[in-house]
């Protein structure tokens, strides 16, 4: 069996004496689309930030492609992992094109020089369903949904094989949200990347995930395919989640 791409091994993490992750273990296979669902404050963002080393575990290990994150060079590690944060965080002083080209420009990638940069940025804009002529705009000139898409394009630019997405579709209307969900599904299928996707929307978690992780107060309480979560929720919280979503079709 293939080695997991991301692995949490009995991770504990506290902030100011408050445990946020407790004995948290998880194995993510290559090419998996893992959706993480749980109440606000249950430690979802904390788990993501452990993967790219923005914070480090108090005890236990986090391994990315077999390498201990605590031992890895954080800069090199992060450049190989796409990351979209909860509030997009586009750079306001850069055009859309420069935002998208940010990671390649950090590593001075020759693939992103001069006209190549414009061509590749335009290509990525199309990939996330945007018009290429948005390239020259500034983030403040975009709608919420457009910003989310640019954030995804930016995370994809360096062709990472892992993508961490923290409630990426939080701030958009229902229709845009559906569209974005379909885009990300298509991207996942086309590129075969491993995605860790945090959401607090059960419908979204079931629709997108090849597997769903339920978190409660820093613990992983259920982990399995969406159909299993629907048919046999393991905890009262999980049961409560799925009761509201029986009508939705889970990902096959």
């Amino acid at each position: 069996m293939a080695e997991p791409v991301i692995q949490f091994d009995r991770v504990c993490k506290s902030f100011d004496g408050h445990p946020v992750l407790r004995d948290f273990s998880l194995s993510v296979e290559r090419g998996e689309f893992l959706t993480v669902i749980g109440r606000s404050g249950c430690g979802k963002t904390t788990a993501l930030r452990l993967v790219n080393g923005l914070i480090s575990a108090d005890t236990g290990w986090v391994l990315v492609k077999g390498q201990d994150v605590a031992q890895a060079d954080p800069v090199a590690l992060r450049r190989g992992i796409g990351y979209t944060i909860q509030n997009v965080g586009l750079f306001p002083h850069m055009t859309v094109e420069k935002n998208i080209a940010y990671v390649p420009s950090l590593s001075k990638s020759p693939l992103w020089k001069g006209e190549e940069r414009s061509r590749r940025a335009a290509e990525l804009l199309q990939t996330v369903g945007l018009e290429p002529d948005l390239a020259g705009r500034y983030p403040r000139e975009l709608s919420g949904g457009q910003r989310q898409r640019v954030g995804i394009a930016r995370a994809l630019a360096a062709q990472p094989d892992i993508l961490l997405m923290d409630e990426p579709f939080g701030a958009v209307d229902e229709i845009t949200r559906r569209q974005l969900q379909d885009e990300i599904l298509r991207l996942h299928q086309e590129r075969g990347i491993t995605i860790l996707f945090v959401t607090h929307d059960i419908e979204e978690a079931l629709k997108l995930g090849t597997r769903v992780l339920v978190m409660e107060e820093g613990r992983a309480t259920q982990f399995g395919p969406p159909s299993a979560l629907l048919s046999s929720p393991a905890t009262p919280f999980a049961a409560q989640l799925v009761r509201r979503s029986r009508d939705f079709a889970p990902r096959q």
Binding site: L54, V75, G80, G89, F91, S107
Partner: peptide, 14 residues
Amino acid sequence: DPDILEAAAGMGST
């Protein structure tokens, strides 16, 4: 804005 700094660090800026 801390979100923007989080993005900058998370994408591997020195």
